[in-house]
Design a protein around this nucleic acid. Sequence first.
DNA 1: CGCTAATGTGAGCGCCGCTCACATCCTAGT
DNA 2: ACTAGGATGTGAGCGGCGCTCACATTAGCG
Lengths: 194, 194
Amino acid sequence: MPPTNATYHHGDLRAACLSSALELLEKGGARALSLRAVARRAGVSPAAPYRHYADREALVSAVAAVGYRELAERLAAAHPAPSTPEQLASVGVAYVQFALEQPALFRMMFGEPCDRDNDERVAATAAVSLYLREIVARCFPHADAEALAPAIWALVHGLAFLHLDGKLDAPTPAAVADRVTAAIHGLLSATAGD
Amino acid sequence: MPPTNATYHHGDLRAACLSSALELLEKGGARALSLRAVARRAGVSPAAPYRHYADREALVSAVAAVGYRELAERLAAAHPAPSTPEQLASVGVAYVQFALEQPALFRMMFGEPCDRDNDERVAATAAVSLYLREIVARCFPHADAEALAPAIWALVHGLAFLHLDGKLDAPTPAAVADRVTAAIHGLLSATAGD
DNA sequence: CGCTAATGTGAGCGCCGCTCACATCCTAGT
DNA sequence: ACTAGGATGTGAGCGGCGCTCACATTAGCG
């Protein structure tokens, strides 16, 4: 752990900003994530974070990257190496659950137009994408993974967002899970018979 | 047209704010949509818009409602009364095209957490939802429209967002359309055989 | 030990959301 | 026709924000 002594220099302000940002985001939504608030929370002057993040968007990208890592962990936790449609569906459910449990983070990962392509962020996105394609290829060796993987991602992603926005009535998390499972199975049985 | 005379009173500031907001949104993205900028563009003092919109979010909701109406028109224009999977797919393509052509507006419609449920906005959402369900029921009389419609919406919605965020490589609009069509057909043939 | 680059400070600019007291105008009721 | 009152726009102002810059402090390296 970096020394949090009360020296002039903070020790590891970069990491402190990142964790403060995550806390602020969870507590108050995207609008509460300001560089000034982060600085305040880290006990540092308003200009200090600019030594570590070029601007607000850079911080947001870093936060999003953390979100991608967390999402990847969640998916892996749902099933380490899915190889059947049922297992793949459980991964899809985990995706939607992640979105519902961390709405602000999920929105930050996808909601804002990523103008400047932060390297870290691009890499994280690519990782998720490849991971998905790999799973699909394993679950449906006879299908065109190149085409099927994006479709499944889109289906799950859309379910996540629509539930997040309250466009789909989801009385309980279990109902959400059922809907996700049903939708995935529907799509999959089609391509499997292809 | 309301008289745009140079009187003390504007005439129809409410509508002027709304159209200014749409212009600002198209030109500079969500971040450029500020009540002050809207007031400036309407040639009015910064506090004037507050007579017509309680706060920024109220304006955003009004903008989103306009977006929903435009989207509904686009879907209807794609096919007035789709009754086959192909026709439904063309509606899905129109949905994604709308998102790609008006990214900022689309994000405004879905991207921000709708805390207070603006009536206008809720109604517009419900309209889209019902419209979709109706179409699905007509295209697939033997399927469970209650379950299928959300799945299709989610699939198309997810494709729209992922393309918007550049998560899916979409070299040309035609490629996007192909992907959307293929994905919808896949999902549909599954439920049709059900 | 001293020099340099890295890091944090304080002040400040312009923009924003929002509020309030006040000015102006429209209109309905007499 | 006249006036009271509600609706609408103004101007000033508060606090917060992103961002920049000159300056202070420090750590680490020769």
